[in-house]
Design a binder for these strands. Sequence first.
DNA 1: GCAAAAATCAAACGTTTGTTTGCAATTTTG
DNA 2: CAAAATTGCAAACAAACGTTTGATTTTTGC
Lengths: 201, 201
Amino acid sequence: MKKINDKMQCVLDFVEDYLNDNGFPPSVREICSAIGIKSTASCQYYLKKLEQRGDIKRGPENKKRSISLTDNKKTEKFLSVPLIGTVTAGVPIFAYENLEGYYPLPTEFGNSDDDLFMLKVKGESMIDAGIYNDDKIIIQKTDYAENGDIVVAFFDDGATVKRFFRKNDKIILHPENSSMSDIILDDVKILGKVKGLVRKF
Amino acid sequence: MKKINDKMQCVLDFVEDYLNDNGFPPSVREICSAIGIKSTASCQYYLKKLEQRGDIKRGPENKKRSISLTDNKKTEKFLSVPLIGTVTAGVPIFAYENLEGYYPLPTEFGNSDDDLFMLKVKGESMIDAGIYNDDKIIIQKTDYAENGDIVVAFFDDGATVKRFFRKNDKIILHPENSSMSDIILDDVKILGKVKGLVRKF
DNA sequence: GCAAAAATCAAACGTTTGTTTGCAATTTTG
DNA sequence: CAAAATTGCAAACAAACGTTTGATTTTTGC
């Protein structure tokens, strides 16, 4: 009884697809007509087996459309991190206008998506640290940085990615690019630390 | 009519939670008792408003439990790509033992997860191309490559990442690292092309 | 080839559930 | 304050749906 056969797979596939397409589960009769069986009893028959195998779960008796996928079928946990478009002076970073969408990330980057965001890198100022133009960097919100951290800081009316140092009461924003020079400031607004990046070739 | 008020928010929250907990949507009456209203008509009233605002979607008339969240609420679509641990000679790459888990990726890397996999990079042979040790690279399965592609090839009993060239009937696997030299072969088994990477600092 | 098991069906039944209607209470607005 | 809009209720209807039963067909194992 542990084996899965064609029809069972059909039912399972259909339920998955239907859920993906509609956001709610199919009814028994919808499954019937989808996989080409004429009796709802046959469908029940398969559903019972799929439940026994642990592929699906069914709600309490008589609840309409109460089929759900079990965890081993459900997509694994992941983070959904806001991808910020442009950073402009004045407008708060996380204003809706700046939001380009949400980006899925594995949980290894954090436990909650609350303190993470992403930013598209413009420029070559960090190429020696392996951060290239158009990379999407993953940033953990914080206003504090330690020496050597790669940070996103507010500078010159926009966000900039640099390596951070504090020396003799001055802040040094160091570009990892031998053709560029350090930015030295009295104070700086730090948006977060760079925790990772995603690149598309 | 564009504003959301407490009760509407309650309904919306409940629907979201219910969907998360059960995998299928609540019925109108369940919403009623959850948020403490006694008439199903009142619930319809809120559901209609939420639908007008675009927060939820409702299925065709009379379909039971056909509430779904709209895309701005739904977790966006994403890919679930297998992350391969070690590549060993003999064992098929996609053997279960080699599978370290699944990794979420945005859909910009492909439409289906079928032809993608990921690999953890070991070594420094591609640092000049911005691929570092311990990076996770995203690979599209293919056995054909064009000049200049960064490929994953089977070489020396394992997978190696190199830039690919074909010249005078020879295959050149070129490491992007000035301290390493080209590998020249008569033939090579290509596993795929590198499409992107994910790095964790 | 035959008996047992598995798969499928049609039909009917009772529940759950979406929908509607009409009216009352409350809040907002001019 | 009166009119209008909003919010709420109870009740009843009809549609969609899950479930069950018992029979029929198909497959399987010997």
